[in-house]
């Protein structure tokens, strides 16, 4: 518990519209270009996943994930309030994303 604690404003939420898999993402920044509203900026270190700078501006169009040239590098991370439900017709078991 020795970690220094800084005073930081609240994080904008929903704050993480996507998650990156750093093992698959090669930092090509295609998603940075595809995003129409600049949710991302390129990471200063080449090869790293972009930085999510404007998460609360995301309109969840999905183009960054759909057009990603390395499948699996970007996973959509739907906000808790927007996670859908479904039901197994036979068993009645209810699932949520």
């Amino acid at each position: 518990m020795s970690k220094e604690v800084f005073a930081i404003p609240n994080v904008p939420t929903p704050g993480m519209p996507v998650t990156f898999d750093p093992e698959i993402c090669n930092g090509c920044n295609h998603c940075v270009e595809v995003c129409s509203i600049d949710v991302y900026i390129p990471h200063p270190q080449k090869g790293k996943p972009p930085i999510i700078l404007h998460p609360e501006e995301c309109w969840y169009c999905g183009c960054c994930a759909t057009d990603c040239p390395r499948p699996g590098a970007i996973r959509f991370n739907w906000p808790l309030q927007a996670r859908p439900y479904w039901k197994n017709k036979k068993t009645g078991e209810i699932h949520q994303l």
Partner: peptide
Amino acid sequence: DTFSAAGFDINRDLLQ
């Protein structure tokens, strides 16, 4: 795409 990755199956499941 998200639904499919999470296991939703149009042949089996009802969508809320």
